[in-house]
């Protein structure tokens, strides 16, 4: 691939929430800005823009990652999933989102999309995740409202619910 000029926009083809998309981005554009400003998915929030707060966390190739520490060009050919994909029906909450609501796992909601995207990976890969695993994953996120306790409770409840779903007779 030839050298891409700084002054122009260049196509970025990737999979976003299960669909193939083509967007246009300058080399310097961050994935967080591509999602919000070019594509219009504003569920991904932008806090500190240097990788500390975790608000912009999305899933890249199945792993939780900071959209603000990723150049749009770096996801070319990759698979990106954002908070908009958690629930199939926009009118409904996913089990994890519903658990957050039930357990008051959010107040202002600014940090919530990032936290949901991290916990979604954890609960998918480790259905037996316990309090310590959840806290370990939450260490990459800042929440200034809840004090985290209700987030941990919500995640534990979602994990428990998921385990019951998988073993309906237990």
């Amino acid at each position: 691939m030839p050298r891409m000029n700084a002054a122009r926009k260049h196509p970025v083809d990737f999979t976003l929430n299960g669909r193939t998309v083509r967007a246009e981005a300058e080399n310097r554009m961050l994935l967080s800005d591509l999602l919000r400003h070019e594509i219009g998915l504003t569920g991904t929030h932008v806090g500190c823009e240097h990788g500390v707060c975790g608000a912009c966390t999305v899933q890249i190739d199945g792993r939780p990652a900071r959209a603000c520490l990723t150049l749009a060009q770096q996801v070319r050919g990759g698979d990106v999933r954002t908070v908009e994909a958690l629930s199939r029906d926009p009118a409904e909450l996913s089990p994890l989102q519903a658990a957050f609501r039930r357990h008051h796992g959010l107040q202002c909601g600014f940090c919530t999309p990032g936290i949901l995207m991290s916990l979604d990976v954890l609960l998918r890969e480790r259905p037996d995740a316990g309090r310590e695993d959840i806290r370990e994953h939450l260490s990459g996120h800042l929440c200034r409202c809840t004090g985290y306790a209700t987030i941990v409770e919500a995640a534990l409840a979602a994990a428990e619910e998921q385990r019951k779903e998988e073993k309906p007779n237990v």
Partner: peptide, 13 residues
């Protein structure tokens, strides 16, 4: 906080 402009190269070798 956004990066300043730069050229970008994705080499194959």
């Amino acid at each position: 906080m956004k990066p300043a402009s730069f050229d970008f190269l994705c080499p194959e070798t």
